[in-house]
Design a protein around this nucleic acid. Structure first.
Lengths: 350, 350
DNA sequence: GGGCGTGGGAGACGGATGGGCAACAAAAAC
DNA sequence: GTTTTTGTTGCCCATCCGTCTCCCACGCCC
């Protein structure tokens, strides 16, 4: 029913007890001794009046808001932020917390980000999640340290805050292994040109996996370009056209799904059928692309949902004193990137 | 600097005045008369101590939280939600409000959505935005009416709440006009099979535009399928293969960008070059697809950002007493869908 | 004595909590 | 078998959280 303005004292009045008692029974205070019948009366009155506690007043008194601040970069431009938010929101909801989300930009000045943190702090959030759009190193506003906080998908340049990131190297290994296991021996890599951790770690995973498979990782073809569709197209053309026919790769590992999309076009132009003539595996599992390409793209998923959920769990544990975040701050927690098998990988032609 | 727990009374102490005075000067209360020098002292003390007001206490006292609740369906699965959130967030921030976002699902029960509204109400948000994933009719939780609220991208089945929706019909006209103006006379429509307003209104816009151009809208080819890539592919094959060669459309208007993506594949398989042999225009302007298809897709953009921003403006105006939402509740506000020209439209072959 | 310029006191707002205070019962003292 | 003593139970009073705001106080000048 509508409650509008029923307060604890209205309930007390209706139940014929004091507000103290109402508070005790509704919060199930352990040390409070209240006769069962009285409890029942109170509950009935509360129910009947449609009483809902005013969280503001509660928070003021208890110094706990039950709100978590989430500062997220570029919510709109990437679906990744959405997955993080979703994971965080569900985990928070499950433990009785709510999220207050502020959007910021990867390009925002430190000052503006500091102001955002300030806004969260004024609202007395119990903890803060700072989520970035992609895995990189960030400068954090210093006031972030005023409440428990954890970094999602990034590592702090300061390095003293708990963080969770995807395991780029192992993700790359997973992707390349899928190709190796399908029987490919000539595998190329379409890499990104940005200087972010993923660029280096995926390359490393690529090389190591080949080496361990007895293929020469150091000699495998790698072409770099911007991590967009156009870049993927260009890099794919270069890699597929270089060298003699016999040296051309029969499989491509792409830095991300957008580049893979470019590779699809390059393959089509060169008359190469996927996966019969060319196998491809991407990275990121961007639904809109990976599932909609034809044939659907086999790719490695970034654990955005899981990172968001994990971060919230840690945060709440810390807030409730079950964990000490400082202990985890030494090194970032890494999370696995699982392979999503679709239809872009097949054995090479005999 | 770090503030931790400096309150108004600390400032008062430091400035040698009463808390009343501090409150007066920091809030620039109009009727309060305070000597300029005193004001200065207070401001200096506040600054020096790094005082930030406790919004909880403020809110408790003033009955205004400065928070807007945003209930959004399926944040993660569509970038649309992201655009709405972004528009809402920026508009809110500009007017000193913050957003509290809760995720819900289009499939969620009325009860669960009601619980979400309840959570927002407990936190005493000043108003609520209810954003849906795509334009349709929704059943709203009844407790939504307890605070000012506006519906984004949907119309309430009850019909008595302010809403803002895209102008589907005019969007379709814009799209089809672009084709007509390029010189096409045989234009087909790949429609959706879902029974949502957009399905009917876009069809209507399609037919009307053709009629007004002297082409026979009623006779124009329309194929319906699921509004995904695969559906688009199938519908496009059907439409491009039916009838004799001379009757085949030279241009396709697609229900959305995903279907357009399917149409691209169909065209490729049939040896039709885009835009030379076949012009295509989509709907939605899903960045990931529209900008990345080759050639890039000309499409109609849904005003998600604008709707989010508009909704927040109305909400805040209502909260601050500048507007009466009830006056606007009679009919939904419709917003324009602008054409985004890229490279998939050209004149038909001579 | 009224007006003006300055500033402070004392409740709210809605709920949480530690310390008490009655009432009654069981145990101990006489 | 009556009193005390010592506990329990069951419940409420008084305060506090941090801020705003109505209303009053004081000094001084006409």
């Amino acid at each position: 029913m509508g409650n509008k303005n029923v307060g604890i004292k209205d309930v007390a009045l209706a139940a014929g007890v004091s507000v103290t008692t109402v508070s005790h029974v509704l919060n199930e205070v352990a040390y409070a001794r209240v006769r069962p019948e009285t409890k029942e009366k109170v509950r009935a009155a509360a129910e009947q009046l449609g009483y809902e506690p005013n969280r503001l007043a509660q928070a003021l008194r208890t110094q706990r808001t039950g709100m978590l601040g989430l500062l997220s970069e570029d919510i709109a431009t990437t679906p990744h932020a959405g997955r993080i938010i979703l994971g965080a929101d569900e985990a928070a909801k499950a433990r009785g917390y709510n999220l207050m989300i502020l959007n910021t930009s990867a390009a925002a000045t430190l000052d503006s980000r500091q102001a955002d943190v300030e806004a969260l702090l004024e609202r007395r959030v119990d903890g803060i999640l700072y989520a970035t759009m992609y895995h990189r190193n960030v400068d954090l506003p210093p006031n972030l340290g005023n409440v428990p906080s954890v970094l999602v998908d990034s590592v702090s340049t300061g390095g003293n805050i708990t963080a969770v990131i995807p395991d780029e190297e192992s993700g790359a290994r997973t992707a390349v292994s899928a190709l190796v296991e399908a029987g490919h021996t000539r595998i190329g890599f379409l890499n990104n040109t940005d200087d972010v951790p993923a660029t280096h770690l995926r390359l490393q995973g690529f090389r190591n996996t080949l080496d361990e498979a007895g293929l020469d990782g150091g000699a495998a073809p790698v072409e770099s370009a911007s991590s967009e569709v156009q870049g993927g197209y260009e890099a794919a053309r270069r890699i597929l056209e270089r060298g003699a026919g016999a040296d051309v790769p029969t499989a491509l590992f792409c830095y991300n799904d957008r580049m893979a999309m470019g590779a699809y076009r390059a393959a089509a132009e060169l008359g190469l059928a996927i996966p019969a003539d060319l196998s491809i595996v991407g990275f990121d599992d961007q639904q809109l692309i990976a599932a909609n390409l034809y044939p659907a793209l086999t790719t490695v998923a970034l654990p955005h949902y899981e990172m968001g959920a994990w971060a919230v769990e840690q945060l709440i544990d810390a807030i409730e004193g079950k964990t000490d975040l400082a202990l985890m701050a030494a090194a970032p927690t890494v999370m696995d990137c699982p392979l999503v098998r679709r239809h872009s990988v097949a054995p090479p032609r005999a």
